[in-house]
Design a protein around this nucleic acid. Structure first.
Lengths: 211, 211, 211, 211
DNA sequence: GATGAATGAGGGTTCATTCAT
DNA sequence: AATGAATGAACCCTCATTCAT
């Protein structure tokens, strides 16, 4: 008589947002933006459709929150680290940054978000804009600043910093795509080996020969 | 009333599938799978919605047909060229191959298909498999063989040929994605400059220093 | 821990219903029945959504309560004034009554309620009935009795008293609607000018020409 | 065996819009704008939800079409008739116009639309704007121009044309509301008598005494 | 064959109502 | 008594698919 009766629902205000964001990340990554149904997100988080709207204004805001939670944070950290590493060797700094990108972003579930953006940006311009402003621009600026610093100090050969930035991020982005992609293009790529191969190429390709 | 008068566009019956496939390619590339409405495909092909269903069972079959139609016949030529260039410098050969990839494939509408396949592969494993076997494997083999030849001849530093192949194709694939993407990730990238920057990096990163 | 300390807002318990009714009146008048969200009513009354349900069974009951609360006590005064003005000129009396209607009723928040009742009557027959018995019938009787008296005394032309009553109240009701309406039908109508124009028309239209 | 089987649906392109408009008019008038569900409109017209969207872009456009079909037309006709009646007596013209308003609009199902607009204008500004532009402004202009003409010709006493217009349309609008209202405010009003009573009042109230 | 009108399952979103706290 | 998190039934609208013409 003492109530084994399960309550129809539980009140867990503090945990909900995280649970919803986790569920949303999974589904967005898995199915893409358009194909993710909010009802599924809710169910996966163990709540009803309506509850989701208590925490996120709409689908787009939910997505932005997912990006903020999983990607933007990491970029911010990298930016401050970079600022704090004034006197490190640029070669080393670049290697560190690109590696971190991999370990903290590309190797996580979050890498699926990059794929999603590339895929659906055309259909959801506002989302693309947001991602560009919050993630891409800042990431590229980070890389470019390392390149410029390295060129100033004579560590690197002279290149177009912006173009080289694009070249350098391409392999990491591709790895993200390959990793969180069901397609076999990059199947069987060992991420560790891939990253090292790439870093080696970059290091040699950028290094200024010692006179 | 003479029944022998040939209807004016009898011939169209044969052309219809091609027109539909062309229209579908354009729209799939532009908007992705889910966001492409069959009514738009039909209209672009100059027929009605119902007609499309006379030639393709449903949306998914149309998509498969588009891939089959557009994706295959592109590797053979490169393979024979490669075989014919036995004695060229590997540095030069690699540069030529990667450049051709860009000029003959990546810069065309077909690059949009690559993006599409990478992105929608999760929902169409069958297509992904097909694409991998017919296109990716053969392309990768081509690059890898150049790398191996260059290493044998002492032109290149020693690297893992397969991993380096992945590293080398990444920027070209990314350029394809950027080119046929509405998203701002690679917006403003000048393809020519990008390619040259990349080729320079690769050349320096692979070249064995002359003692 | 002296238990005699009076909680600071014990008294509120009694005030709550009034506060809720006031809030509900404002919002119902502003937005209509369907468009009024109970959450807004609660917030405006300074309580939470759940609290509202402690005092009113549901939205419909709240609405009924609002009507009951605001609609009745308005006719009595006019009735006794009329009785006290036995010997006034009927022309003057009519003018006074219609003016008072405007100044004491139509120009206040209560006029919004009239609109609301007229408009939502279809969905709340019970309320419509109540409103009719308590307000409309008595008001109409008042006007009609002035008309009859004026006709008896030879001040007015002969008309059907009941129909003319309807005609005479129409402009005042319309002014109520226009006043508490967001719609542009009567936008820009100056109530004072409107009333005077109307009274002039009525006076001339009713006056029996002096031979 | 010869097909008593009822086809799942019939193809009646030409009749559909009218059927949908009729169904929509009924429901809008009955329940108001917000409370009318498009599915009900469709069902009443004998089609499915989706079919409605083949003919009307959305709820708002459906409503506008209903107004155009039932109200705007009539105003247009009145405008041209007015223009064609250059030399008629203004007293007569005014009487004719107001009568026509009643016979062609107010006494029809369309009068419910006026109520709807007054009721919901605040919540649907765009609709209110449309109705004002297409119906109210033109109707008021019509009445005002008769008044002005009558004053110029010495038929009418001098009044503020705009205010008097508002006064004159009020009883007709009220009659519309009463007629298509479930509420009892105006219950039992005989429209014919009401109109005549009103026209008499107006005629006497406007007429310039013959010197 | 060809058409395009018609269908209906669903997806995003809102909100009256309930109930664990 | 009071709260506000949670629910779920609706509603508007879209679009792949069907089928009468």
């Amino acid at each position: 008589m003492h109530a084994d009766t399960k309550p129809r629902w539980e009140r867990r205000k503090d945990a909900r947002p995280q649970e919803l964001l986790a569920a949303a990340l999974d589904l967005f990554v898995d199915r893409g933006y358009a194909a993710t149904r909010l009802e599924d997100v809710a169910r996966r988080a163990g709540v009803s459709k309506g509850t989701l709207y208590l925490y996120f204004e709409n689908k787009q805001e939910l997505f932005k929150a997912v990006v903020r939670e999983n990607v933007v944070q990491v970029i911010g950290q990298a930016e401050s680290d970079m600022a704090a590493a004034e006197d490190a060797s640029c070669t080393e700094l670049l290697r560190t940054m690109l590696r971190r990108w991999w370990t903290e972003l590309a190797s996580t579930r979050a890498s699926g978000l990059a794929k999603l953006i590339i895929m659906e940006a055309g259909n959801f311009p506002e989302i693309a804009q947001f991602y560009n402003d919050e993630v891409i621009s800042r990431g590229q600026a980070l890389i470019a600043s390392i390149l410029r610093r390295g060129m100033e100090r004579g560590e690197f050969v002279t290149v177009d910093a912006q173009l080289m930035t694009h070249v350098l991020i391409a392999p990491v982005i591709m790895l993200m795509l390959w990793t969180h992609s069901h397609d076999p293009c990059g199947a069987g790529v060992d991420p560790e080996g891939y990253i090292e191969t790439f870093l080696g190429l970059a290091q040699r390709g950028l290094a200024r020969g010692t006179p």
